[in-house]
Design a protein around this nucleic acid. Structure first.
Length: 167
DNA sequence: GTCACCTTAGAAG
DNA sequence: CTTCTAAGGTGAC
């Protein structure tokens, strides 16, 4: 059984992101469909619980800060219950990577005591429900190559650039 | 069961 | 240098 999620859009100049909340916190974040960046689209939040609105406020602020190349500030609580134990371990490790810093898939693998599971780490990154906040984009291949990215390599490059990472 | 995936170290040519 | 291989977790088929 799965708790239905409350879905709310986040309109930024980079496009309209989609966020989804469970009863525990932010559960998913999607990149904008494609193009058509529109600023300042207003959305009805009539049926949204007060608590979720508060989280959403934090989400919007954090997202805009990141897109502006600043530190995110406050995050809403995350609900990563959808992942497996291994994935949550990986995501938890990713969150420790500070802004402007990068790690390799191998380093993440070692950090979760599965030195040889580098490819599994890649899989976990791809399964990451909350990109940007759980910084899967800060994970590069061993020789500082870009590697891949489900949401589109352009986003990975863009996010890193906005954090001041050169490569 | 098999395959493909955001990988990587190492061995061989 | 390039190419090939094996190894790990997980979901799709």
């Amino acid at each position: 059984m799965k708790t239905p999620l409350v879905e709310l859009p986040v309109s930024t100049c980079a496009g309209q992101f989609i966020t989804r909340y469970s009863k525990k916190g932010l559960a998913e974040l999607d990149f904008p469909p494609v193009g058509t960046p529109r600023c300042g689209v207003r959305t009805s939040q009539r049926d949204v619980p007060t608590e979720v609105r508060r989280w959403h406020q934090a989400t919007v602020a954090a997202l805009k800060n990141v897109l502006a190349g600043r530190s995110p500030g406050k995050f809403p609580p995350f609900d990563l219950s959808s992942g497996t134990t291994f994935q949550r371990k990986v995501w938890n490790t990713l969150r420790k990577i500070v802004r402007g810093q990068t790690k390799s898939y191998g380093e993440i693998a070692r950090a979760v005591d599965k030195a040889k599971a580098v490819r599994a780490v890649g899989g976990a990154c791809g399964a990451n429900p909350i990109p940007i906040f759980v910084p899967c984009h800060r994970v590069l291949a061993a020789n500082k190559k870009l590697g891949g990215f489900s949401g589109g390599l352009n986003w990975k490059r863009e996010l890193l650039k906005r954090e001041g990472v050169k490569f």
